[in-house]
Design a protein around this nucleic acid. Structure first.
Lengths: 129, 129
DNA sequence: ACTGTATTTCAAATAATGTTGAAACACCAT
DNA sequence: ATGGTGTTTCAACATTATTTGAAATACAGT
């Protein structure tokens, strides 16, 4: 399929170390083949963006303990309703949490994805090292 | 130390399910104790922010194969020099990559942290399922 | 229907991040 | 020193994310 794997490096001058190991990787074409496709990268960057905020990480950590209604989360975070709602919507849109209505309340819980991202090195209770 | 663990939930009305399991978690105070501290959350959100971009994830994936000079990364990403430099600086600032000068080139590689974050579910080569 | 509580939505203001092209810097070879 | 190549920095601009307070929605009890 790819006709000229190694030839493509020939077009640009490289430091010796890189040239050698790149050659072993199958040249630039070989390197590219080992990368995730763009859709996967976009999907993953979306999750990271959703996790790129301390409030949201804290929400995830809380839900990691147990499902909670908004009012408890609000009591812990001590932020305005609308602000909390915004952060919840970011997490929900990213597919990390889901809310189930129960009477007057909405109880949020981790989704399968959310649980996967919450259970991660550096996410243990309290400081890590 | 914490004098009134369970009393604090008494102040706010909760859905029965949440109230019960929250009680088992030691009330709101008990829940809070299980959360990472703010410094840890901030630190982690910083890493996620650095990973919240497809270009940067692709760079990380590339360096996960082998160390590379900027010109090779540029050839794969096909973006302007200054743009690439910006994204490299974000990753470098987050402590995920480091650059070693070698003659005219700068060769970037994953740091220990970078390798840890690059080796992650959903980061395998090509689509995941 | 009406009230009260829990939560979300909206639009406007602010802040943070990403992009661009030009200029600067660092290094090697001459 | 000069010139060429690889890479970064800068400032202006464009885009996107976050915060805020007010208004809206949804539900339960009366």
């Amino acid at each position: 399929m790819t006709e000229d794997r190694k030839d493509r490096d020939a077009s640009l001058p490289l430091p010796p170390d890189v040239e050698e190991s790149l050659c072993r990787s199958g040249g630039i074409a070989g390197l590219v083949e080992q990368l995730p496709d763009d859709a996967a990268l976009t999907r993953e960057s979306t999750v990271h963006r959703a996790l790129a905020d301390p409030f949201r990480l804290k929400i995830l950590a809380m839900l990691s303990v147990q499902p909670l209604c908004v009012c408890v989360i609000k009591a812990v975070l001590a932020i305005a309703d609308s602000k909390l709602s915004y952060h919840l919507s970011v997490l929900k849109t990213a597919g990390l949490i889901a809310g189930d209505q129960q009477g007057n309340w909405i109880i949020y819980r981790l989704t399968e994805d959310g649980a996967m991202w919450a259970a991660r090195p550096g996410n243990g209770p309290r400081q890590e090292g």
